[in-house]
Each structure stands twice: as structure tokens, then as C-alpha cells.
Design a binder for these strands. Structure first.
Length: 594
RNA sequence: GGUCCAAUAGCUCAGUUGGAUAGAGCAACAGCCUUCUAAGCUGUGGGUCGCAGGUUCGAAUCCUGCUUGGAUCACCA
């Protein structure tokens, strides 16, 4: 990178001019702000204590040294304590020449024999359909996996489906009681929605029961909640499930299959996938052994009732239950087991969990317990903690029906895409099939970009009353720019010769574009370090915004000079390529026409 | 109550390890299609970067306190 070259040369300059050695870290080289002349800026304030001169003189000293000793630096200017360096156009043209043709520009080659990075995401419960919160999780997980791949990592995408437990029994019980043998086929409902319907029904009936019990005056609310017959029945069903009771297992298998099929449809439509799917029914017993060994080694302790605990008070946390007095395991016990399983299964470089920030405490505890158990690899665990999707009235709550359903949302986006496209009337020659494909690409582009452009760590707002925009800083805007370029390329034909670079003069806007393109590999690196699709999204938006200005103001095909025309066409193609790559990292497709 | 996170334009969000006059989009208003796709471009207005201190050449960014909002502190997952 040119920044590094400048940094090193400035070190040499300081040595030559002032006869001092400085830590390269204190030399700050950054992009020059657009309102000033220059490409890179050196902030000289930190260097004054070494130069023992005022900012202007110090900057001039270094500027002169660099123009003399570095062919890339053409000239410089000094404003206040800022040394603005102008890079020779040939540097940008060389960069263009070397990379415009590279379809994989910015993508690092896969590291050979590198340990895999395991990314867990999605991890749904099979008692209700996916909602907007899951969409954020899924999109983040998928995109982060793509970004890590682009950084040369060997990525394994896994999903741990939570298919057992009391909440699943609730759906099953409600269906058994009031379902009249409804099936996805008989009702035409998607399986996950059908099962979700019975989960909601259970909650409704359960609440009625509790209310009734309280009004009868025998129980207070808390007791009623624990003793409602429906709940007891569900708990009994869970015990039967654990005892492998055939009737329960059969029901469970059937209803889970409905849900899996429903999820597959949603996943497919969202364009996400997994290399491996774990089921909690297979993993929920893991971890017991780990805990028992820990107990034997006195890393853990047992209470008089026989329950097993980890004491985390020395870490500033509390005690944490790991095995109930009856020896059954809890959620975290299972997670300890699956973490260990993955560690031995993959020998990974990192274990990444895409899980909401509501579970921050859980992951802190998880790591501390693993450490306590002597599992020193615990440090490879990274909780990719993302913020909640909030609605104007607050958080989404399944039980209160304030969720934005994933399938519904995609349907709505699809209709909006169709409506907008029809109004614009640009694809009247498309077959219905091709048109639908486009609506799909555009609607998903809008949805995905809307979610991924926000910093994963932050909570985000979604207002169901306002449809997701198609103008401005949006997926369709970026897709549109790509399509525009494709149109230009089509009109330009295949006859573009490689331009004669000696004859090329790049204008200011072209230089800005080349500088942005130059940054792309670094952007991918940064996005990988931060696990942040938003970094990519913001970058590609800036690139596209700049290109649209260029497109508006600079003729590309309508220039007489063939050399200039070829250069502009190829520059456009280069940009389209980077748009496509960026969007791919976000899991978004780009259309040739729209 | 303890712990953690957040607070930037009317709304939704950017803002790299502290650097120049804090940026986009939406919404509002005013312009630009006989010219490469107007899902676009140009312009105008819009800010006590939650509040108060501190650190220093320099703070939206780091530290302390406070206010507000959220999460969490289950023998739920």
C-alpha cells in the first residue's frame, strides 16, 4: 500500500534530515480531505518534538525530501500542520493497468493449510417461524462468512437447530389437543407457520388458565403460572420425550419436519446456506462429561442437593448452575459440550457465534467456565454480538404478536419491487419469469442492504409502516448503478482495445474513483477484522455515489478520442466488477438490467 | 440494585489507531430527461455530536461523574 511506502520513507526522511529514529506508528498518513489539494496527508504535529521546528518548516522539510526521493510523490503543499502530498498520476494509471482486468480484485487467495473458521449463525427454535430478528442474524452470519472467505479464510458455516425443549412441547401439545390433525398439506400453510400457530394457541390457552386459576382464588399469579395444567402437561411431555416415548417422538418428528421444510424455503429465498446443520436433540446431552470431569478435578463444586455449579465469584460474576440436582443439563452445559465438540471436530482457528447481544452474559460465562475447566482454547471463541431490531413501539415479542414475519416481509418487498419497476416501465420486453427474477433480486437487495449497512453491534430501527426505500443509500441504488454500467458495456461492444496509457490524462473525478478502487482490498481486510458487513456496504455506497456523479458529468461513450473512450469504458467495467464483488460479500445479487 | 451497551440534523444512519470547517440518505424546497437507464444528478435550508468536568498542540472519538434508553443478572433457551 502507498500509505506504507510513504510511512517508511518518512521514517527515512526524519532520519536523514533530523538524524532521529522514530517509531513508525507515530507517523500518521491519511487520505486528504476532498476540499484540499492532494491525495495523502501527513499530520506533522506529533513530529515537532523531534524536528524541533515549527509545523510549517517541518512539513516543508519532509515534503521536499519526499518529492526528491520518492517517484510517486509529485508535489506537495502545506496548510497549517498538514502536509498534503500529490501522488503522480502515473501511480494511479499503473494501478489501473495492473488490476482493471482482475475479476478477483480485492479477494485474497485462500490460505493454504489454514485452520478453519467456524461460523455459527441462524440457530432457530422450531416452535415458530423466522422473523426480522432472525433475518438480521442470518444475513450477518452469511455475509461475515463471505467476508472471511474473501480474506483467505477457510470457513465452515454451521447452524445449531434448537429442536427440543419445553417450547417445542408446547406447540406439539396444542396441536394434539386442538389441531384436528391439520397438516401443511391440508391447510396449505407453510409448516413453520402452522407449528407457530399452535405455539401461539398454547400461550393463549395457558394465559386463560392462569387467569382463571387466579380468579378462583386458590393460587396467586406466580403459583398459577407454575401449576397450570397445560404447563404441567407440556412438562410431562418433555419428560416422555427424554424417555423416548414413541408417541411423543413420532409427533415431534412429524412436526419438526414440517418446520424444517418451512425453514428451508425461507433460507432458500433469503439465499443463505450452511455447510453443516447440528440438531440440539443430538447435542443436548453433550457437556455432562465435561462437567463431571471438572467436578472430579475440583474445578467445579457440588451443593448438598447434588446440583453442580461453577463458582465465578473470583471473576466478578456469580455462581452458575451446570447440572440440576437430578443430573439433567441446562442450556449452558450443552453449549460447553458443543463448543468442545467443534473444537475437536475442526481444530479451528476461531469459533464465531453470531448471537444477539442479549446473550453477552451467557458468552462471558461460557468462556470463563471453559477456562476454569482447563480448556485453554476458550480464547478462540468469539461472540459476534449484534444489536436488536427494534420497532417504533419497542422490541419484537413473539408472544405479543409484534413480530415482523420473515416470509411476509419478503412478500411485501417483492410487491414493492414489482410496483416500482412497473411504474418505471423499463423492462416491458421482459418475460414474466425474467421480471419475477428481477423483482426478487431488487427486493432482496433492498432488504439485505437495509439491514447490513448498519453497524452489527448497534440496535437498529425498523418501521413496518414505512416500506424500505429504493432510492438513496439503498441496495437498489447500487444495483441500478451496476445495471447502468452493464448497459454502457453492452453499447461499447467487445471492441475495446487496451488504451495507450501514455496518451491518457485522468481527470479529477477519475482520480477520485481510482483512489476509491485502490482502497478496496484494504476495506475487505478491515471488514474481516471487524466482522462488519457495514464496512463493505458503506464503501460500495461511496463508490457508487462517486460513479454516478462521474456518469452524469463525464461522457463515456460520446467522446471522439478512442483512447479516452476505451479508458472510461474499462474504468466503468472495473467499478462494476468491484460493485459486484462487494454486493456478493453482502449476499446481494446484481441485475444486468433494471 | 450490580454489570454491560448505546445516545451525532425532524427521521434512519456514517464518522478508521484522537487530526483540518462533523458527513450521507430520507423528508422539505428549487432546478436538470430530443443527449451513455431520472431507482439518477445539482442546489438550498437543517447540528449545544445527551449534560458537566478532565487529559493535550488538537476530542464526536480517550478518562471521570451525571441524565436518558436498552440488554442482562433463571434449576428458560
Amino acid at each position: 500500500m502507498i500509505e506504507n511506502i510513504l510511512n517508511k520513507k518518512i521514517c527515512l526522511a526524519l532520519n536523514d534530515i533530523y538524524n532521529i529514529n522514530v517509531n513508525p506508528d507515530i507517523i500518521l498518513v491519511q487520505q486528504t480531505r476532498v476540499e484540499f489539494e492532494g491525495d495523502y496527508t501527513v499530520v506533522v504535529f506529533p513530529l515537532l518534538r523531534y524536528s524541533k521546528k515549527n509545523p510549517e518548516d517541518t512539513a516543508n522539510d519532509i515534503g521536499e525530501y519526499l518529492t526528491k526521493n520518492l517517484k510517486e510523490v509529485k508535489s506537495f503543499n502545506v496548510i497549517k500542520g498538514f502536509l498534503n502530498l500529490v501522488i503522480d498520476d502515473n501511480f494511479w494509471i499503473d494501478f489501473f493497468n495492473l488490476n482493471f482486468n482482475n475479476d478477483n480484485f480485492g479477494i485474497k487467495p485462500q490460505e493454504k493449510s489454514s485452520k478453519p473458521v467456524v461460523v455459527e449463525y441462524s440457530s432457530p427454535n422450531t416452535n415458530k417461524p423466522l422473523h426480522l430478528g432472525h433475518i438480521r442474524n442470518n444475513l450477518l452470519g452469511y455475509s461475515v462468512a463471505e467476508i472471511l472467505k474473501a480474506n483467505g479464510k477457510n470457513v465452515v458455516k454451521v447452524n445449531l437447530v434448537n429442536n427440543r425443549g419445553i417450547h417445542i412441547c408446547k406447540s406439539i401439545l396444542a396441536w394434539k389437543k386442538w389441531g384436528n390433525n391439520e397438516t401443511p398439506e391440508s391447510t396449505g400453510m407453510k409448516g413453520d407457520h402452522l407449528v407457530g400457530k399452535y405455539y401461539v394457541l398454547f400461550e393463549t390457552k395457558y394465559k386463560e388458565e392462569v387467569k382463571k386459576m387466579v380468579s378462583e382464588g386458590i393460587f396467586n399469579e406466580e403459583e398459577a403460572k407454575k401449576n397450570a395444567p397445560l404447563l404441567l402437561e407440556a412438562q410431562e411431555m418433555l419428560r416422555k420425550w427424554e424417555a423416548k416415548d414413541k408417541e411423543v417422538i413420532d409427533l415431534w418428528t412429524m412436526m419438526n419436519d414440517w418446520v424444517y421444510k418451512g425453514f428451508d424455503v425461507t433460507y432458500n429465498r433469503l439465499g443463505i446456506d450452511f455447510d453443516k446443520i447440528y440438531y440440539e436433540s443430538d447435542t443436548y446431552l453433550l457437556g455432562k462429561e465435561l462437567v463431571n470431569t471438572g467436578l472430579k478435578n475440583n474445578f467445579l463444586f457440588q451443593k448438598p442437593d447434588g446440583s453442580v455449579w461453577a463458582d465465578l465469584k473470583d471473576k466478578g460474576l456469580d455462581e452458575k448452575l451446570l447440572l440440576r440436582k437430578d443430573g439433567t443439563s441446562v442450556y449452558i452445559t450443552q453449549d460447553l459440550g458443543t463448543a468442545k465438540l467443534r473444537y475437536t471436530e475442526y481444530n479451528p482457528e476461531k469459533l464465531i457465534y453470531v448471537v444477539g447481544n442479549e446473550q453477552n452474559y451467557h458468552f462471558d460465562v461460557l468462556k470463563l467456565i471453559l477456562e476454569k475447566l482447563g480448556e485453554n482454547w476458550f480464547q478462540i471463541i468469539h461472540h459476534l454480538s449484534y444489536g436488536m431490531v427494534e420497532l417504533p413501539h419497542g422490541k419484537m415479542k413473539s408472544r405479543e404478536g409484534t413480530v415482523v414475519d420473515a416470509d411476509d416481509l419478503m412478500d411485501e418487498m417483492f410487491s414493492t419491487a414489482r410496483k416500482t419497476t412497473e411504474e418505471l416501465g423499463k423492462i416491458k420486453d421482459f418475460s414474466e419469469e425474467k421480471a419475477n427474477e428481477l423483482y426478487n433480486i431488487v427486493s432482496l437487495g433492498a432488504l439485505k442492504y437495509f439491514i447490513l449497512k448498519v453497524d452489527p453491534k448497534k440496535n437498529m430501527m425498523f418501521n413496518p409502516e414505512e416500506s424500505i426505500d429504493f432510492n438513496g443509500n439503498t441496495g437498489p441504488f447500487i444495483q441500478y448503478t451496476y445495471a447502468r454500467i452493464q448497459s454502457i458495456l453492452k453499447k461499447a461492444g467487445n471492441s475495446n482495445n487496451i488504451p495507450d496509457y501514455d496518451g491518457i490524462k485522468i481527470n479529477k473525478k477519475e482520480k477520485e474513483l481510482l483512489k476509491l478502487l485502490y482502497q478496496f482490498p484494504e476495506v475487505i481486510t478491515q471488514a474481516g477484522k471487524d466482522y462488519s458487513p457495514a464496512t463493505i456496504a458503506n464503501y460500495v455506497f461511496t463508490l457508487v455515489k462517486n460513479y454516478n456523479k462521474y456518469y452524469q458529468e463525464v461522457p463515456i461513450l460520446k467522446v471522439d478520442d478512442n483512447n479516452t473512450k476505451n479508458f472510461r469504458v474499462l474504468l466503468s467495467e472495473f467499478i462494476a466488477n468491484v460493485i459486484k464483488t462487494s454486493m456478493k460479500l453482502l449476499g446481494i445479487e446484481v441485475p444486468v438490467r433494471m
